[in-house]
Design a protein around this nucleic acid. Structure first.
Length: 425
DNA sequence: TCTGGGGTCCTAGGACCC
DNA sequence: TCTGGGGTCCTAGGACCC
C-alpha cells in the first residue's frame, strides 16, 4: 500500500486565535502584526478579500485598514503557542503518527486508517474545530509535497469543505497544471523566477523536467521536490524537525539604540530567553554568538553590521555564564556613533545535558554543579508564578525605551491568570 | 516616525594536512 | 625552466521553510 501523508494546518492561524475570544469579530476583517508592530503577518479571510497583502509594512497600509474598519492586533505569542499545543494535542490523540512541522502545521501518516483517509480526515477536522475552535484544512497525498499541494487545493475550493485527497483525483495532471510553480513546496522566489524564464510556470511542467538538469541547477533539494511530484517519496514523516542545532533570540528595537549599556541589557535579555529554551530542551550549548545590525532601510545612515563568536570552555545552560560570554562578544563588535536597529544572540554546539563532557580540571568556578539546582529553582519559580517572576539584574528595567512596541496586543486569555476572559452574569 | 523572527540544508571555496 | 593530488574541515552565502 502506498503511504498516505496528510498535511494538516490551521486556517489563518493567528487571526483565528484572536477571534476565539472575540465573537464580535466573527466574519469581520482581522489582521495580526509582526513583532514591533512592523508588518502584517496574518489575515482573516475577510482581510484577504480586501486585498491586504501578506508582509506589508503596517505604516504603509494603516490608512487602508482604517478605511475598511479592519481590527488590528499586535502578535500575542503566549496565546498562539498555547492554542497550537491544544490543536497538536488533538491530532496526536487521534492520528497513528504525527510530526509537528510549525506552530500551525503538522504532517501525519494516515496509511491504513480505518474507513479511509478522506472520511478519517473529515472526522478529525470536525473534532479539532469542536474542541479548540480553530478551523483547519487537510490535504492528503502519496508524498509530503503532494499532501501540501492537496492542502492548498482544499483551501482554495469551498466545494471540497476543507479536505482533499490528491489520489482521489481523476485527472491529477490537470491539478498540477493549475498549480503555479511558486506555490510548490520547496520552490522559492528565486528558483520560481528562474524556472519561469525557462518556460516552466506550473507544477506539471516542473514535474516533467529533466531530473539531471534539476539536480545540477537546484541541488538535491530541487531534485527531491521533482521526484515527490512524481509520487516518489523522498521525505519521510520522521524527517521533520530533528534534534535542534541552534537557538536564536533577536529583536528589532522599539527605537534606535547606540549605547553599549543598552545593548548589554538587550543582549542579556535575549540570553535569558535563549537559556530558558535551552534548559527546556534539556541541552547545553558550547558556543555563544552575538550580532548587531543598523537599519538596512536607512542606507543614508552609517551602517555597521558585525558578529562575534565566543566558544565556552565547558558547554553549559547556566544563564550568568552565558550572559558573560555574550557581553564579551558584544564588547568586541560594538562601535560608538551608530544607531543600532537590532541585536541578538545565537547558541550553537547544542548537546543533550546527560551526554555532556565534563572535565574537572577545566571546570570554571562559575559553572560548578551547584548552579544547576539554582537554574532549576529559577525555572520552577517562573513556571509556577509566571514568566520573569525571577530574572537577572543584567536585563535592566522592563520599561526601558528600547523594548519592542506592541500597542495592540490582546489579553493572554489562556495562559495568564490576570488576563482570563470575564463572563458577566 | 513606521519594514518580524527563528530555523534548516546545500554548495563552493579556502585552509590545512599528508 | 620547475610548482601534485586527494581528503577533510570550516565558513560564508544562498535558498528555502513557517
Amino acid at each position: 500500500m502506498p503511504p498516505r501523508y496528510a498535511l494538516i494546518d490551521c486556517n489563518n492561524f493567528y487571526a483565528s486565535c484572536e477571534r476565539l475570544f472575540r465573537p464580535d469579530l466573527r466574519d469581520r476583517p482581522v489582521v495580526v502584526l509582526s513583532n514591533n508592530d512592523g508588518c502584517v503577518i496574518a489575515r482573516s479571510a475577510e482581510a484577504k478579500a480586501l486585498g491586504i497583502p501578506m508582509g506589508t509594512p503596517y505604516f504603509k497600509c494603516r490608512g487602508l485598514l482604517r478605511r475598511h474598519g479592519v481590527t488590528v492586533f499586535s502578535s500575542n505569542y503566549a496565546l498562539y503557542g498555547d492554542m497550537s499545543a491544544r490543536v497538536m494535542g488533538v491530532l496526536a490523540r487521534f492520528c497513528p503518527a504525527v510530526a509537528v512541522y510549525s506552530i500551525d502545521e503538522a504532517f501525519a501518516d494516515l496509511t491504513g486508517v480505518p474507513g479511509g483517509a478522506d472520511a478519517f480526515s473529515r472526522r478529525l477536522k470536525a473534532t479539532v474545530e469542536a474542541w479548540t475552535g480553530i478551523p483547519i484544512s487537510i490535504g492528503i497525498g502519496p508524498t509530503k509535497t503532494l499532501a501540501k499541494l492537496a492542502n492548498r487545493l482544499a483551501k482554495g475550493h469551498p466545494r471540497l469543505r476543507g479536505v482533499f485527497d490528491f489520489a482521489a483525483s481523476p485527472d491529477p495532471d490537470r491539478l498540477l497544471r493549475h498549480t503555479p510553480i511558486d506555490a510548490v513546496w520547496g520552490i522559492g522566489r528565486r528558483h520560481a523566477a528562474r524556472l519561469v524564464r525557462y518556460g516552466v510556470g506550473d507544477a506539471l511542467a516542473f514535474r516533467d523536467m529533466d531530473p539531471v538538469w534539476v539536480r545540477r541547477k537546484m541541488s538535491v533539494t530541487g531534485l527531491h521536490t521533482l521526484l515527490e511530484l512524481r509520487g516518489q517519496p523522498c521525505h519521510t514523516l520522521a524527517d521533520g524537525p530533528a534534534a535542534r542545532k541552534t537557538i536564536v533570540s533577536s529583536r528589532s528595537f522599539g527605537r534606535p539604540v547606540s549605547s553599549l549599556e543598552d545593548l548589554r541589557e538587550a543582549t542579556a535579555l535575549h540570553m535569558v530567553r535563549a537559556a530558558e529554551k535551552l534548559r527546556r530542551l534539556r541541552a547545553v550549548a558550547a558556543c555563544v554568538h552575538v550580532f548587531l545590525r543598523t537599519n538596512p532601510f536607512r542606507p543614508g545612515l552609517p551602517q555597521h553590521n558585525d558578529s562575534a563568536s565566543v566558544p565556552l570552555a565547558v558547554a553549559t545552560a547556566h544563564t550568568p555564564t552565558l550572559i558573560r560570554a555574550a557581553h564579551a562578544g558584544l564588547e568586541r563588535i560594538h562601535k560608538e556613533g551608530f544607531e543600532f536597529k537590532k541585536c541578538g544572540i545565537m547558541l550553537s554546539g547544542l548537546e543533550p545535558v546527560n551526554g555532556r563532557w565534563l572535565s574537572l580540571l577545566d571546570l570554571p568556578p562559575q559553572d560548578t554543579p551547584t548552579h544547576v539546582p539554582t537554574m532549576q529553582i529559577v525555572d520552577d519559580l517562573n513556571a509556577r508564578w509566571g514568566r520573569d517572576t525571577v530574572t537577572f539584574a543584567a536585563v535592566g528595567r522592563p520599561d526601558a525605551a528600547w523594548h519592542m512596541r506592541r500597542d495592540m496586543r490582546s489579553p493572554r486569555y489562556t495562559t495568564a491568570w490576570t488576563e482570563l476572559p470575564v463572563a458577566r452574569a
